[in-house]
Amino acid sequence: TFELKGKVGKVVKIAEDHYLVEVEGDKWIAYSDEKLSLGDRVMVVDVDGLKLKVKRIP
């Protein structure tokens, strides 16, 4: 999972307290300090167990 840091993915689902992002064909639970929208491109900035911390990228 640490090899996911720096990888780019996209938001595929928005849940009440987390996001579902697809990175390299796999779906992961993710969270972010900013509000994300469906389809946003994101970069993995940290890995916390099986959850990814992501940030939006242009």
Rank of each mutant, 00 (worst) to 15 (best):
V12R: 10
D26E: 07
G39R: 14
K51R: 08
V44C: 04
D26A: 08
E24W: 01
G49C: 07
V54P: 00
F2G: 15
I29W: 08
D26W: 14
V21W: 02
K55N: 14
F2L: 15
E24H: 02
A30N: 01
P58D: 09
K35T: 08
G25F: 13
D48G: 03
L38H: 12
V8D: 14
V21D: 00
V54N: 00
G6P: 00
G49E: 10
D26L: 11
K10C: 13
P58S: 05
E3F: 03
D33R: 06
V54E: 00
R41C: 10
I29A: 13
K35V: 10
K7D: 02
K10S: 08
E34M: 07
D40M: 08
E24F: 02
L4V: 15
E3C: 03
D40P: 01
V47W: 03
I29Y: 09
L4K: 03
R41I: 13
E34N: 05
K13I: 12
V21G: 01
D46W: 03
I14N: 11
V44T: 02
K13Q: 13
Y31L: 11
M43S: 05
G39F: 06
V54L: 04
D40E: 10
R41E: 14
K7F: 03
G9Q: 00
L36F: 05
V42G: 03
L52D: 00
A15D: 14
E3Q: 02
L4C: 04
I29V: 10
G25P: 04
I29D: 13
G25M: 08
T1S: 15
K13H: 04
G39S: 12
E3W: 05
K35H: 07
I57K: 09
K27P: 04
F2W: 03
A15Q: 11
E16V: 07
V47C: 04
E3L: 02
E24K: 03
L50W: 13
R41N: 07
K27I: 08
H18C: 09
K51D: 13
T1A: 15
M43G: 04
L36K: 01
V54Y: 00
M43D: 07
V12W: 07
E16A: 11
F2C: 15
E16G: 11
F2D: 15
L20W: 14
I29N: 11
D17H: 07
K5H: 12
K5C: 15
W28R: 02
E16N: 10
K53T: 12
T1V: 15
D17F: 07
V23A: 03
T1E: 15
L38N: 11
D46G: 02
E16W: 08
A30K: 00
V45S: 09
L50H: 09
G6Y: 01
I14W: 08
S37M: 09
K5I: 15
E34K: 07
K7T: 03
W28F: 12
H18F: 10
Y19G: 09
G49M: 13
L36I: 10
E22T: 13
Y19K: 04
F2A: 15
S32W: 11
S32E: 04
I29C: 06
K27W: 10
W28H: 06
R41H: 14
V23E: 01
D46C: 03
D17R: 15
D46S: 03
E16D: 07
F2R: 12
A30W: 00
K55H: 11
L52Y: 02
I57V: 06
W28E: 02
K27Q: 14
V45I: 13
V23W: 00
E34R: 05
Y31R: 12
K53D: 14
E3I: 02
E34Q: 12
D17Y: 09
L4T: 05
K5W: 15
V12Y: 10
S32D: 14
K10L: 13
S37L: 13
K13A: 04
K51C: 07
K13W: 11
L38F: 08
V54G: 01
E34F: 07
P58Y: 04
V44L: 02
K10M: 11
Y31Q: 14
V47D: 04
G25Y: 12
D48K: 04
Y19R: 03
V42Q: 00
K5L: 15
D40I: 06
G6L: 01
T1Y: 15
D46K: 02
E22L: 11
E16R: 11
P58N: 05
E16Y: 09
V8R: 03
L36T: 04
K10V: 12
E34C: 10
K51W: 06
Y19C: 07
L52V: 10
H18K: 12
K27C: 05
V23H: 01
V54A: 02
E16F: 12
E16H: 11
D46T: 03
L50C: 07
L20I: 07
V45E: 15
K35D: 12
V54D: 00
G39V: 11
D40K: 04
V42L: 04
W28P: 02
L50V: 14
K5R: 03
K10F: 09
Y19N: 14
K35C: 08
K27L: 11
M43R: 03
L52S: 02
K27M: 09
I57Q: 13
V21A: 08
V11D: 00
D48A: 05
E24I: 03
Y31H: 06
E24G: 04
K7W: 02
E22M: 06
A30P: 00
S32G: 11
I14E: 08
Y19H: 10
A30D: 00
I29K: 11
V12E: 13
G6T: 01
E16S: 13
V45N: 05
V8E: 15
L52F: 02
V11R: 00
V12L: 07
K55Q: 15
V54K: 00
V45T: 07
H18E: 04
K35P: 09
L20N: 09
V47S: 02
K51G: 13
L20M: 08
K53V: 04
I14Q: 13
I29M: 08
R41G: 13
L38I: 12
D48F: 09
V12G: 07
E16L: 09
A15T: 08
L4M: 14
I29E: 14
G9Y: 01
W28Q: 02
M43L: 08
W28K: 02
D40G: 05
V42C: 06
L20T: 09
L50S: 10
E3G: 01
D46A: 04
